[in-house]
Design a protein around this nucleic acid. Structure first.
Lengths: 147, 147
DNA sequence: TATTGTTATACTCTATAACTATA
DNA sequence: TATAGTTATAGAGTATAACAATA
């Protein structure tokens, strides 16, 4: 798939593309700050949030984070040292270790989630129709043809 | 500014917030890949793009990147070692060093910019009205009341 | 005195490769 | 033999603190 030359020069499109870049930068910045308020790095916060949905094998975490499994070892090490995550054996496969949040880890993940208001605030001012349109656009940007 | 409890649980809002998170993750991933295709890290690519608009003092780069000036020294060192950036004296203030892209650096920045089609492609399928609405929403997300 | 850029240091994230224990 | 997780290693980004040159 290629973009037409016109799309690269249309002023409105260029402006929207730049705005998307700014939103991405802003979102990342706010996420890092929220993580820092909980004394977590961005990567630690992302993994803790991931595990708060469901405990996962190390390998699956690496896939979700799109990084090498060896990195996950270190990040889980640090989360475990702080008592936020624990490693459990998998009864079905003794090679596997399941990473799961502790009670304190779950509490931290919840607090972190609640503090991520950046993306939520502006949406509160949108009509339902606008939100539906936005949802459709975002889905298209992600290539989710279904829905 | 605080989000109402309702906005935190409204299913549509929650879904849109999650989609925004996905778009941000995707955008970052694609940016890193585009940088890697040019043998650059994300930070190197961002600074090179920044300088391709206008040469800047080290201190100003740090402000734009929202990082400490000491970090910029190392990143510019690596870009300079590869012949993509050069340090020039500032005639007006001998303490200042201006970082500027070389001819090859400018070419690399251009190529990098052209390869960032991710955000542009889906926009090509939107009507002008949709793009205008999206622009308004993105501006609101960034707190730009004007416009 | 204050500012600009740098150096030194320490920590985290990252990929690669080699290792272990299981399957 | 293949897979899950780990270790070892090296490079890059990050913040902090201390420093030299200049304002």
């Amino acid at each position: 798939m290629t973009t037409t030359p016109a799309a690269r020069t249309d002023p409105l499109t260029v402006e929207v593309v730049d705005l998307i870049g700014s939103v991405v930068a802003r979102y990342h910045q706010e996420y890092e700050q929220a993580a820092a308020r909980h004394a977590l790095t961005g990567a630690q916060a992302r993994i803790l949030s991931l595990l708060s949905v469901e405990p996962l094998p190390m390998r699956r975490i690496a896939r979700a984070m799109k990084c090498e499994p060896s990195n996950v070892t270190g990040i889980i090490d640090r989360l475990e040292a702080r008592g936020l995550v624990e490693r459990r054996p998998d009864p079905a496969d003794r090679r596997v270790k399941l990473a799961a949040p502790t009670r304190e880890g779950a509490r931290t993940a919840r607090s972190l989630r609640d503090s991520l208001d950046f993306a939520r605030e502006p949406l509160a001012g949108l009509s339902r129709q606008e939100r539906l349109l936005l949802r459709g656009l975002l889905r298209r940007m992600l290539g989710e043809d279904a829905g």
